[in-house]
């Protein structure tokens, strides 16, 4: 039995356990990549980060962007999944077209989106101006820049939620809907009291997966706004990148990586507890 597990254990050790252990080890060092020997400083990197207003600002940005985009993706994804479920023709074609943004390489998708949002000669501005509509400052205004990123993330990842929820609807027991219909329930009541409660475990599952993924939000924000204007759209992962790859402070970047891991793990643990209370079948 152990021999069968050996290859996967080796892979897990190389790609997961070793980097994680290294990151934890480095997080206790003052380690500047530009020169000088690494120096053990205990928890100083963590304390420095926890006292850093930029860290808390970036955490808030991340929560706002992740929260808003996951909610938007869930609402739009569920609506589209229900529309596909109700549709009788062209379902495959529509779902395929909807899924395309999700298969585009993230950086390519981000460049494409940047040239849509960019001021004045971007696709959005050019289109709005041609209709005499004065466009907002998509990437230059702190609030609009956040909204632009939320829209970009939704465009990219909503299809994933749509497809999973649509697959869930395929397994739905239609007798429940027929019974509700006979009892006189209208479309809204069937959705509110039959479909949503039945799908709740699946919904919580995809939200957990998406939220965990979105928390590591990097490529879109790096290409589209680079965290700007100022730090208005700077997320925790982008700050980690800035510290590690721009400031070359490997120790501090590792500490921030470990802190992010703890935050995401706590968030997912909370969701698991929530799900296990609602119904153990979710996991």
């Amino acid at each position: 039995m152990w021999l069968f597990m050996l290859p996967s254990l080796v892979v897990m050790t190389v790609v997961l356990a070793y980097p994680l252990a290294s990151a934890i080890y480095y997080s206790f060092l003052r380690y500047y990549l530009g020169g000088g020997a690494p120096q053990f400083i205990g928890l100083a990197n963590y304390l420095e980060l926890l006292a850093d207003a930029r860290f808390w600002g970036d955490l808030l940005n991340t929560v706002i962007i992740v929260g808003a985009s996951v909610v938007l993706q869930l609402v739009v994804g569920l609506a589209l999944a229900l529309a596909l479920y109700a549709a009788t023709r062209g379902v495959r074609l529509i779902s395929l077209l909807n899924f395309l943004p999700n298969v585009v390489t993230p950086v390519v998708g981000a460049i494409f989106l940047k040239w849509m949002f960019i001021g004045r000669f971007g696709l959005l501005d050019a289109t709005l101006i041609s209709f005499d509509v004065y466009p907002p400052n998509w990437l230059g205004d702190p609030v609009w820049a956040k909204i632009s990123l939320i829209l970009a993330d939704t465009w990219k990842f909503m299809p994933f939620l749509m497809l999973v929820l649509y697959a869930g609807l395929q397994a739905f027991d239609t007798q429940l809907l027929e019974a509700a219909q006979i009892d006189g329930a209208n479309a809204w009541q069937r959705l509110r009291y039959v479909i949503l409660p039945t799908m709740k475990p699946l919904i919580l599952f995809v939200v957990a997966i998406r939220a965990m993924d979105a928390f590591r939000f990097f490529d879109l924000v790096y290409v589209i706004t680079n965290g700007g204007p100022g730090t208005a759209t700077e997320t925790i992962t982008l700050y980690t990148y800035q510290i590690g790859f721009r400031m070359l402070e490997v120790g501090k970047a590792s500490a921030l990586g470990v802190l992010t891991l703890i935050i995401v793990a706590a968030m997912i643990a909370g969701l698991i507890v929530l799900m296990s209370r609602r119904g153990r079948e979710a996991f």
Binding site: F117, I118, G119, R120, L139, G140, A145, I224, G228, P229
Partner: peptide, 12 residues
């Protein structure tokens, strides 16, 4: 300035 200047580099 042309809007969005905080996302503008040399190419733009």
């Amino acid at each position: 300035s042309v809007p969005g200047f905080t996302a503008v580099h040399n190419d733009e």
